[in-house]
């Protein structure tokens, strides 16, 4: 017990010393992730941590503390409460619900904490969203498909989870685009719940029902499965379909010369959000205030796109990484600085 106390005292002392030695700017940022079901989320957090390290070169000490676990909505609210108790300067959340955080974000703001949501938009007026516009994400894939097909043909859509906000926005995005191409005919839309196996099965059913289909709009997380069905049916050369940004798919794409294009939802969004947060903590002001989106609190990041033209570059970026690694991009500190006055 005595030993334990000694260790505890030692730690306290060393923390106190390191705090007093830090003459540079020091910011404490809490990262909360409420779902650990995919490698994408793990990569998101790793990139954000790396981005925080980079600030050291600028003489800014960014200390991140991470809460990442499978939790229900109250559990993630508790994440935010813990951060408030810890006295962080900013909180960056990949939220489990678009609306449930309104009251707790209000409390965080009251406590003088900057709140940023990333990857999924939140309705709270006390938070800023830094991430991609999911509607534009859906539109980009559809635009690539329409142009690849020369503006005409039969198209099917394989969507994610019905009722999920991001899915609804992506669907609205491709619908908007196809309106401008009167000769593109959307013959069917199915839900495959962002699941590779369900995507594969949905594509099998589609190929059986519509043997003359020309194009497929399929979201990431299901596209590899859908492509497997296309390849199994021997239709690789005849069908154009959207793809994935994971390394294993990019490899397959390069090897088999698939006619594919992938809108990138980069795991680097949290790193971008972190860079924006640090600049905001330094008291800088955005050139254009974040007022986009349905909740009027969004700052949208550019959305990269991979197609046959830049596939080789993308393959180079993910070269040597494990198969689950996703192609990524993030605002560098300089990129972020350019957005501020």
């Amino acid at each position: 017990m005595k030993k334990l106390i000694a260790i505890a005292l030692g730690t306290v002392a060393s923390i106190a010393i390191s705090a007093s030695l830090a003459n540079a700017e020091t910011f404490k940022i809490g990262l909360s992730n409420g779902w650990v079901g995919s490698e994408w989320r793990t990569q998101m957090i790793d990139e954000a941590k790396a981005a925080a390290e980079k600030w050291k070169e600028k003489g800014v000490d960014v200390e991140v503390s991470v809460q990442s676990a499978n939790v229900d909505v109250p559990g993630q609210i508790a994440h935010v409460r813990n951060f408030i108790a810890e006295g962080v300067n900013a909180i960056i959340v990949n939220p489990n619900s678009p609306t449930a955080f309104d009251p707790i974000f209000a409390q965080a703001k009251e406590a003088g904490i900057l709140v940023i949501a990333t990857d999924a938009e939140v309705s709270s007026p006390d938070a800023t969203y830094v991430g991609i516009d999911q509607t534009a994400w859906g539109a980009a894939g559809a635009k690539w498909l329409a142009e690849t097909l020369g503006g005409k043909g039969k198209v099917v859509a394989i969507n994610g989870v019905a009722g999920h906000p991001a899915n609804e926005m992506r669907v609205a995005g491709y619908k908007q685009v196809f309106k401008d191409y009167p000769d593109i005919q959307v013959v069917n839309e199915v839900n495959a719940n962002w699941d590779q196996a369900q995507g594969q099965q949905a594509m099998q059913n589609i190929l059986a029902t519509y043997p003359d289909v020309n194009g497929v709009v399929v979201q990431d997380g299901m596209a590899a499965g859908a492509w497997k069905s296309i390849m199994d049916a021997g239709k690789t050369g005849q069908i154009a379909a959207t793809g994935e940004i994971r390394k294993d798919f990019i490899d397959l794409w390069s090897k088999d010369k698939l006619n594919s294009g992938a809108t990138v939802n980069p795991p680097g969004v949290m790193a971008s959000a972190l860079n924006v947060a640090v600049l905001m903590l330094q008291g800088k002001e955005l050139k254009e205030p974040a007022t986009a989106g349905q909740y009027k609190n969004a700052m949208y990041l550019p959305i990269p796109f991979i197609d046959s033209k830049n596939l080789a570059d993308a393959a180079k970026q993910v070269d040597g990484k494990p198969g689950y690694y996703s192609y990524t991009s993030a605002l560098s500190i300089e990129d972020a600085e350019a957005l501020f006055k």
Binding site: D72, P74, T99, A100, P103
Partner: peptide
């Protein structure tokens, strides 16, 4: 209590709470 703390409706919010 949940509605008081989250200020919104979510048809799936309680699913994970049962086993807890």
């Amino acid at each position: 209590c949940l509605t008081g703390d989250t200020a919104s409706g979510d048809p799936l919010v309680g699913g994970k709470m049962t086993l807890y």
